[in-house]
């Protein structure tokens, strides 16, 4: 099956950064999608049903928490693995992340190797 991965961040360099970090996954046939706000992310998730989503929390329009809540609590898409990303120093309550059903919680700056390893693990590569 074609694996899909979505990167959501309002900052272009972060999107680029994650894309670049995970570049080698493209060779394994993983399709990359990107979105720059919550609304767009939600649309792509509904349309493409990606296996893995890297989701920034602080975003205009709809924030990451809300996206996560809708996906997990309303759309009940359990097979979408959501990694919430927040900047260091802006950490939200981890409990809040759990409440909205996030699978993992990471802080920026992140370790590229950790992100890649996690993605491979989730995608079973």
């Amino acid at each position: 099956m074609q694996q899909k991965l979505l990167i959501v961040d309002d900052e272009p360099h972060i999107r680029m950064l994650i894309e670049q970090t995970l570049e080698e996954l493209e060779d394994d046939g993983v399709d990359f999608f990107t979105a720059e706000n919550g609304e767009e992310a939600l649309k792509i998730i509904q349309a493409e049903n990606p296996r893995l989503v890297f989701l920034d929390v602080m975003m205009p329009k709809m924030n990451g928490m809300e996206v996560c809540r809708r996906v997990k609590k309303e759309l009940l898409l359990d097979n979408v693995f959501i990694v919430l990303l927040t900047a260091k120093g802006q950490e939200l309550d981890r409990l809040k992340g759990q409440e909205v059903g996030a699978d993992l919680y990471m802080t920026k700056p992140f370790d590229p190797e950790v992100i890649l390893a996690k993605a491979k693990e989730v995608l079973g590569l």
Partner: peptide, 21 residues
Amino acid sequence: EKKKLGAEILNLYQEINMIFN
């Protein structure tokens, strides 16, 4: 060009991360 830029950003990012660690 975009990819090259991305690679550069990743490189810089890794450096920051490395120095941080």
